[in-house]
Simulated assay, not measured.
Amino acid sequence: MNYLKSLKSRVVGDNSESKIAEILPVSSEPFECKPNECVNGFKESCFSLRSDAAATPLYETAEPSSLHFLVSTGTTDWEHDAFEQKGTILNTFNSKANNLARSSNITIKSNVTNEPLNISDPQSITLNKLDVLILPWFVWIRGITKDNIDEVFTKIKQILQSEKNDDTVKGNQAENLISKLTNVEGLVVTKDPNMSVILLCSHRTRDKKCGITAPIMKKEFDSQLRDLELYRDSGDDRPGGVKVIFVNHVGGHKFAANVLIYNKHGEFVWFARCTPLNVKFILNETVQHHKVFPANVRACSTFNAVKW
């Protein structure tokens, strides 16, 4: 597929920029900063690409999701299939998410993350009680178990069916979700206070390069976010920050580093072929000013702002 896409672009030209510009504003700033503008040093060889991966046009090599479930596991690497961990309810959760996607005719993506677990709760430690961040709703559902998981997905499905296939109502859907789940036994439903969430694949077992590049990228993101007073770790609930999270395989690891950004303002952007030299652009232009650099966009979409 990527070979055909690359061949077509050489023959008839690549109109990706015009397509992207219809969705999000295009920045006139360079995607790369100068090496001395990075806070941390890094080896360029860690981000080297095969010739085909470097030449393939990126746009539409990935697909934006209507919903993205992020399940906390407290680790930065996982089994090859991160949802096939025996003795947990991860597989149950993933199956129900896939069923919801089919029955609602939408695209849903599920990932596990390095977000911390409640170490005082044995069910959380064994991943039989799940904490899940739902994007782009920016809503946390904490305490999903085998006893309430059916009700959780039933409520989500009701919301999707009542406002079907309309990505302009994400904010309303989020408010409705909180209202519907507030009284479900065992759940704690809260609003995520961050203005943006950035996802980096750190799945070393699936692809060694992701395991190498993700910590380097996160170190640079965190350093620059501190300088901007936007850094937030898992214990910091101050509103308006930016959280950088490790996730399992997202697809297209040959384009690593992949960087997925959800802005509460109303944008989703999936950049690829990234290095620490791109962090300044991503934070200044995409996170704060909602603009993109088309040549490195794999997917993008907009949605109504979530107003908290």
Rank of each mutant, 00 (worst) to 15 (best):
G13Q: 02
E17A: 14
S28G: 08
F31P: 02
E32R: 12
K34V: 05
N36F: 12
E37N: 03
N40T: 00
C46S: 10
R50H: 04
D52L: 07
P57F: 11
L58R: 03
E63Q: 04
S65P: 15
G74S: 04
T75C: 03
E84F: 01
T88Y: 02
F93G: 01
S95M: 10
R102A: 14
S104T: 09
K109A: 15
P122D: 08
I125P: 00
D131L: 03
L135V: 00
G143E: 05
N148C: 11
I149E: 12
F153G: 01
T154A: 14
I159N: 09
Q161G: 08
Q161V: 07
V169H: 01
E175M: 11
S196M: 01
C201P: 13
K208R: 14
K209V: 12
T213S: 11
S234N: 06
G240K: 07
V247M: 10
V247W: 05
N248W: 09
V250Q: 09
G251Q: 03
F255R: 07
I261F: 07
Y262Q: 07
N263L: 03
H265K: 11
G266W: 09
G266M: 04
E267W: 06
F271R: 06
A272V: 00
R273H: 11
C274S: 14
N278Q: 10
K280C: 05
I282D: 02
I282C: 01
E285G: 04
Q288E: 10
H290E: 13
H290Y: 15
F293Q: 07
R298I: 04
S301R: 01
W308F: 09
